[in-house]
Simulated scan of single mutants.
Amino acid sequence: MKIVVWILVGIGTLVLLGGVVLPLVHWLLGALGWLIAGALVIGGGLWLAKRAQSRGEVAPPQDAQRLP
């Protein structure tokens, strides 16, 4: 009888892993991928902006209105 219980526990574990844990891990890895991609895009944009500013390609506006 104990062997039947252990087989049922094993099957239940496989069902739990397949139905709950694996989709959760898949979703987390997908979210992590989007976060990495977003960080690369933002970091690359900042790097390009600093590079253009240091070369003098982007100058601050001459007639900028200032707040009193």
Rank of each mutant, 00 (worst) to 15 (best):
M1D: 13
M1V: 05
I3M: 08
I3W: 05
V4P: 03
V4A: 06
V4T: 13
I7P: 04
I7A: 07
V9Y: 02
G10V: 00
G10Y: 02
G10M: 02
I11F: 15
G12P: 00
L14T: 03
L14C: 03
L17G: 01
L17W: 06
L17T: 11
G18P: 02
G19F: 08
V21S: 05
L22R: 01
L22P: 05
P23S: 02
P23N: 01
L24D: 04
L24Y: 07
L28G: 04
L28S: 13
L28R: 07
L29P: 02
G30E: 02
G30H: 08
G30N: 06
G30F: 00
A31V: 15
A31I: 14
A31Y: 11
G33T: 02
G33H: 05
W34N: 04
I36H: 01
A37E: 00
A37M: 10
A37R: 02
G38E: 05
A39W: 02
L40P: 05
L40D: 00
V41D: 01
V41W: 01
V41K: 04
I42N: 00
G44P: 06
G44T: 00
G45D: 08
G45Y: 08
G45I: 05
G45E: 05
L46P: 01
L46G: 06
W47G: 10
W47K: 11
L48S: 11
R51P: 04
A52L: 12
A52Y: 13
A52P: 09
Q53N: 11
Q53V: 15
Q53H: 14
S54Q: 12
S54K: 14
R55M: 12
G56F: 14
G56H: 14
G56P: 12
E57V: 03
E57A: 12
V58K: 15
A59H: 11
P60D: 14
P61A: 15
P61K: 13
D63G: 14
D63F: 11
D63M: 11
D63N: 13
A64C: 10
Q65K: 15
R66G: 14
R66A: 13
P68F: 07
